[in-house]
Amino acid sequence: MQFNLLFCLFILSGTLLPAQVVFPGDLNNDGTANYLDLLPLGVAYGQTGPIRFEATLNWQPQEAELWGLNLPVSGVNLVSVDADGNGIIDSLDLDAIALNYDSLQTLSLPPPQPYLLTDTFLVEERPTLELRFNRTEATAGDTVEVTIFLHIPDPSVFPPTNPPTAIACQIAFDPTMINEASTRFLAAENSEDLMFIGAGTNNVDFGRSPLSGQLEFAAAGRGQGALAMSRPVGKFIIVIEDMILLEGSPGFDINDALLINLNEQVIDIQVETDSLLIVNTQAPAITATSLRAYPNPCTKSLQLCGGSDQEVKLFDHQGQLLRVFQQFGQDCQQIDMDVYPAGAYFFGVQTPENYQTLKVIKQEE
C-alpha cells in the first residue's frame, strides 16, 4: 500500500512540474532559427548531457531533460544547444539550424527570450571584420569572389582561456545589381577548425533564406579559440546581374557584427569594406544616332529621338523589359510615361556602332 502511494505521488509530481521544451535549430532559445544560433554551438562545443528520447530535427516542441550547464552570459540551458538531442554538442547540431532556418516559435519552455549578451571583454585595439573583393571592377554577368576576413591587431591581449571563438554578421547590398539566385557560400581556405552558416535569398547551405538584398553569416570554432588570430572566416561568390543597366557601387555593407569569446563575452569590433565598381563596358559613343529625350525628368510623356532604324527597348530600374518600339527611325516619338510609376527608366538601342542606353526620370505630377 505504501509503495503504491509513493508511486502515485511520483507520477503526479511529474505531471505537475513544467517540462523543458525545445525547438531543434533554435539553439539560443530566442524564438528563431537563424545564423546567430551558431554562436552558442561554438561556445558549448563538446559538452555532453542527457539524451532527448524520440528526438527529431522537425520544427516542433519536444520535451527534454534539463542539462546541468548553462551558457555563461545568456543563461540558455545547454539542452537547447544540443539541437539533434543525441546528448553531445557537436557539428551535427548544425543540420537543425539549416533545416529550420527562419522558422519562428513561441512555445518553448522556458519561453523564448532575446539573445542578449551583456558582458563585454575590453581590448585596446579593436578587431576589424572586412569584406575583400578579388577585383575592383566588374560588369554585367561577371563573377566576383568576396572574402570575409577577421583582422586581430594584437593576439596577445586574449588569454589562452578566453580567446574569440565565434562571429556573426549581416551583409547588405543593392539587390538590383546582384543575381541573388547565383550567390554561393564557401568555407574559407584552411578553415577545417571552423563551422559556418551562410544564408542567401535562395539557400542556407540546405535551408531557407533571409530577405532580398541581405546575406547572413556566422562562423565558430569547435569549442576552441579559433578566432584569436587574423584569418579569413568565410567566402561567398556573387554574380553581377546580367540584365543590369546601372553603373556604380552595389553598396555592400556589414551590419550587426558580433564577435564573442569562449565565455560568451562580446568583443567590440569595427567593419571595413573594399570598393567594388560596376561599370558598363558598352558605354555609348556620341554619334548622330544617339538617343535623346526631353523633357527629362518628365511627368506624363516625353519626346524620344534617335536610334536609327533599330528597335528601342524600355527597361525599369531592375532591368525588366517593359516595352519594345519597332521601326523607330530618326524621327522623334512621343512616349507615354503616365502608365508607369515614378522612378528611373532606361531606353536601350543596338546601333551599328555600339549599344546605347539613356536614363530618364519619371516624376510624380
Rank of each mutant, 00 (worst) to 15 (best):
Thr183Pro: 03
Asp205Val: 11
Val271Trp: 01
Glu272Val: 03
Phe217Pro: 04
Glu216Lys: 05
Leu276Phe: 09
Leu245Ser: 08
Ile244Ala: 01
Val233Trp: 01
Leu186Ala: 13
Arg222Asp: 06
Phe236Leu: 11
Ile278Val: 15
Val204Ile: 08
Ser191Phe: 04
Gly248Tyr: 10
Val271Met: 06
Gly213Phe: 06
Pro250Asp: 01
Thr287Val: 14
Phe217Glu: 05
Thr281Val: 14
Glu189Met: 12
Asp256Pro: 02
Phe217Ser: 04
Val233Met: 04
Leu194Glu: 05
Gly221Leu: 04
Glu216Ala: 12
Met243Tyr: 11
Phe217Lys: 04
Arg222Cys: 07
Ala283Tyr: 10
Arg222Thr: 14
Phe217Asn: 07
Ile267Glu: 01
Asn261Ile: 01
Leu258Lys: 08
Glu189Gln: 14
Gln214Asp: 00
Ala187Ile: 08
Asn202Arg: 12
Ala283Pro: 03
Glu264Leu: 00
Asp274His: 04
Phe236Pro: 01
Arg231Glu: 11
Val239Asn: 06
Ala188Asn: 09
Ala181Pro: 01
Ala220Leu: 10
Ser275Glu: 07
Ala188Met: 12
Glu272Arg: 10
Pro210Gly: 06
Asp268Thr: 11
Arg184Gln: 15
Pro232Arg: 05
Glu247Val: 15
Arg222Ser: 09
Phe185Tyr: 11
Ile238Met: 08
Ser275Asn: 12
Met177Cys: 03
Ile260Gly: 00
Ser290Pro: 05
Glu241Thr: 07
Gln224Ile: 15
Phe206Gln: 13
Glu189Pro: 15
Ile260Leu: 03
Phe206Cys: 13
Phe236Val: 06
Asp193Glu: 14
Asn190Val: 07
Ser249Cys: 08
Ser182His: 04
Ser191Ile: 06
Thr201Pro: 01
Ala188Val: 08
Val279Phe: 07
Ile237Pro: 02
Thr201Asn: 06
Ser212Leu: 09
Ala288Val: 11
Phe206Ser: 14
Ile286Arg: 07
Ala285Cys: 12
Gly234Ala: 10
